[in-house]
């Protein structure tokens, strides 16, 4: 399954290089103009889609594991909105701040946002599994409203769209590299995959096995925050990837992260890359934001998943 997925990803990546406003054929790669188009725009865009998709899917799975609930994902549950709030405040207060300061502000805000969410959902009864996504959605909505208010007061409404609606049309060489940090953070979660899986037994059982629950949780929340923030800073929020993909891979591979994470990363990359190619093609020469396409695909996929889940239960 992993091998077939990788082959499909390679095929889509090739396709992604050749689909766009400026027509490009394989022969053009030999010319300087075609080559620079590929290196400066098409390849960065392809990489951005793959890295963001893989990262978002992984963080979704980790968040679901930490919340012990399958219906949450960081992008809509406050981390995404908090990251936007972080950049927004940073841009308002220190307009001249270099990008890495904004990035750090977004990551810290996302971290704070995730920690508050964890504290909010902790006392919720496990017998009511729908309370967690409800609280998370309301919480994300409240932070989103704060973001909109601050942006309105600061006359920054026109920037808001770039953070809240993820799209890849602006991706160029030199403007997406932060996503490699997201990739590093996602890859780091592979190292603690076994420990994270132990948390599915519950905190007590994990401690009884000698796991340092606090440390592992902290590491996981940090990875989630960094990935979310980097995606919001470079592309804007892309919802649903973190929700749909982990649900799909849990059905296929189960919740043992060592087994599931590679599949999750691959499926997330496939989803976002395919959605981006579709976004470029559907009304060429114009584009649809990839967040919109993903949300459309994701909503349908999620409805199907819930229906299948209900049929099984």
């Amino acid at each position: 399954m992993l091998r077939a997925g990788l082959a499909l990803l390679a095929a889509l990546a090739c396709l992604s290089v050749f689909v766009g406003t400026i027509p490009l054929s394989p022969a053009d790669l030999l010319g300087a103009e075609g080559w620079s188009l590929v290196v400066d725009s098409r390849l960065p865009r392809t990489f951005a889609a793959i890295l963001a998709g893989a990262g978002l899917a992984i963080t979704g799975q980790i968040m679901q594991l930490l919340a012990r609930n399958r219906f949450v994902e960081p992008m809509t549950a406050g981390a995404g909105q908090s990251a936007a709030l972080g950049i927004l405040l940073c841009t308002l207060l220190v307009p001249a701040a270099p990008i890495w300061i904004k990035m750090a502000a977004a990551a810290l805000a996302a971290l704070a946002g995730s920690l508050i969410l964890m504290a909010l959902i902790r006392p919720l009864p496990p017998t009511q599994p729908l309370l967690v996504p409800l609280v998370a959605l309301v919480y994300g909505g409240v932070i989103g409203a704060v973001v909109a208010f601050v942006a309105y007061q600061g006359d920054m409404m026109q920037f808001l769209g770039t953070w809240l609606t993820g799209e890849l049309s602006g991706v160029l060489r030199g403007r997406y590299e932060l996503l490699w940090i997201a990739a590093a953070a996602s890859a780091a979660t592979f190292l603690i995959a076994d420990r994270l899986t132990l948390l599915t037994l519950g905190e007590d059982a994990a401690r009884a096995l000698g796991l340092n629950v606090g440390l592992v949780t902290a590491g996981a929340v940090m990875a989630v925050s960094v990935v979310t923030a980097m995606v919001v800073v470079t592309l804007g929020a892309i919802p649903f990837v973190g929700l749909v993909v982990p649900n799909l891979t849990a059905r296929l591979a189960g919740d043992n992260l060592r087994r599931a994470l590679p599949l999750t990363a691959l499926a997330g990359a496939l989803l976002v890359l395919a959605a981006d190619i579709f976004s470029r093609w559907i009304r060429a020469p114009y584009e649809v934001p990839v967040a919109t396409t993903v949300a459309a695909i994701g909503a349908v996929a999620f409805l199907a998943l819930i229906r299948r889940g209900a049929a099984r239960a």
Partner: peptide, 29 residues
């Protein structure tokens, strides 16, 4: 915690675990 985990095992409440884990994976924990 990690030293005591080699001396004393606690069987977790299975009702609290909703994760999709294979039996061999669980026992492996």
């Amino acid at each position: 915690d990690r030293d005591l985990a080699r001396v004393l095992a606690v069987m977790p409440q299975s009702t609290e675990v909703s994760a999709r884990l294979r039996l061999a994976e669980l026992v492996g924990f």
